[in-house]
Design a protein around this nucleic acid. Structure first.
Lengths: 225, 225
DNA sequence: TCAAAAGTGTTAAGTTTACACCCATGA
DNA sequence: TCATGGGTGTAAACTTAACACTTTTGA
């Protein structure tokens, strides 16, 4: 390490994960009730620390995997949070990421071990440190992204009905959408493909199951719901 | 420091500033030709390191002030850059910020001392480390923000003509705008106020000078250019 | 008198919104 | 047979885009 750099202080670099899931028609976050200090017993985001041999992005993936058992998850950086006093346990600069996970696939046992629970996005309890602000920023960023890129499919099973998809976007935007206008727009996106499968669990009549074709999207990447 | 935290490594936390200016009708960045190691002689963003007693945001303001002499500048965080090998001089997690400065107000002597120069945004030379990626992200973020919030005024003098304003948005968006449509939209924003002053430097006829009224904007914050 | 930038409205095209009924099925 | 969610089209309102000429004045 050269002289110029080594005159500067060093910091713990933390990771915090805002983990979105779409559960029973509601947008939820996976939150921990901390069983360790500081702030034992309070609610927080899943977190961890960047290690020497990993990038910050890789650390975020690792921390998410520690809680959910999942890899190859859609994640996006929310930003760095660096107030001097943000963590009473010590000076930590933390980088927040949001993740969109498929609620059917995560490891429930790991989640139980971490004392983590799904909480409706509109009923998030007070969180430690600046985690509430991280959630607010993550939600705004996710909403914005979801409007212009097809990231919502990460929250759904591979096959989904149009009612599920509409429901998802309604909870992301926090407002109802018109069914006919919604379906009109979906019909224009050729990469949202109708399959010949029918979902019979949601209604007597049954609803057509659709899938997102990522390759087709890359060829005609127009998206706006 | 408690035991849990201290088992983790610590890192230098750097700051890099993408400094936008609007100079002679062009969008430019203030770049340094480094006169220190590593990468002496190459082009880079203005940077520095977070210190013990300052937040990351405050460090960014300090680093910007070191180069420009300015405070109270519009700055926004671009994100944290944390690849293991991003800086060959050592492991540094860097947080990038963009700044919008008024080209008439910065301290030219400080800039000279730092060996910094204004470079057209479309003619940015290869930059060290991941600075090119930082610039790319900052530009996309700034463009996006400029479309929905009135941040462009930070790049203009207090009094400006509509031609200057249109020119600014043309270089931000990288595309020409229709003069009549542009002026129609400006006319709808009551917080962009016509003054009784005339600019005679840009044309024989003279152009009305306008000002941005921030208080009026906060009362009716509709913006879209 | 003319070059150069300032200033000014209208129309067509495209997009978005609002809206209500029939269908298929299992219980 | 009926309750439930699935599925379908049109018209009005609004927004955006395209477009060309007159004004002023200093050199």
């Amino acid at each position: 390490m050269n002289n110029y750099y080594s005159s500067n202080p060093r910091f713990y670099v933390g990771i915090d994960c805002i983990i979105f899931g779409f559960l029973e028609g509601e947008l939820s976050l996976l939150l921990l009730q901390r069983d360790f200090e500081p702030a034992r017993g309070e609610w927080s985001l899943m977190g961890g620390f960047v290690q020497e041999d990993e990038s910050v992005d890789d650390a975020a993936k690792r921390v998410l995997a520690e809680l959910t058992g999942l890899d190859k998850v859609y994640m996006e950086q929310v930003g760095a949070f660096g107030d001097v006093q943000r963590d009473p346990g010590g000076r930590v600069v933390s980088v927040a990421y949001y993740a969109l996970i498929n609620i059917d696939e995560y490891d429930r046992e790991l989640v139980r071990q971490h004392n983590a629970y799904w909480v409706n996005i509109d009923e998030v309890p007070p969180l430690i440190f600046d985690h509430t602000e991280m959630v607010r920023k993550a939600r705004a960023l996710m909403r914005q992204k979801a409007a212009t890129e097809p990231i919502g499919f990460n929250l759904l099973p591979k096959l989904f009905t149009l009612s599920q998809l509409q429901n998802l976007y309604e909870v992301i935007y926090g407002e109802p959408l018109d069914k006919r206008n919604f379906r009109k727009r979906v019909a224009e996106m050729n990469y949202i493909e109708k399959t010949d499968k029918i979902d019979k669990t949601g209604s007597r009549r049954g609803a057509a199951l659709y899938q997102f074709n990522e390759k087709a999207y890359r060829e005609a990447p127009k998206f706006k719901i």
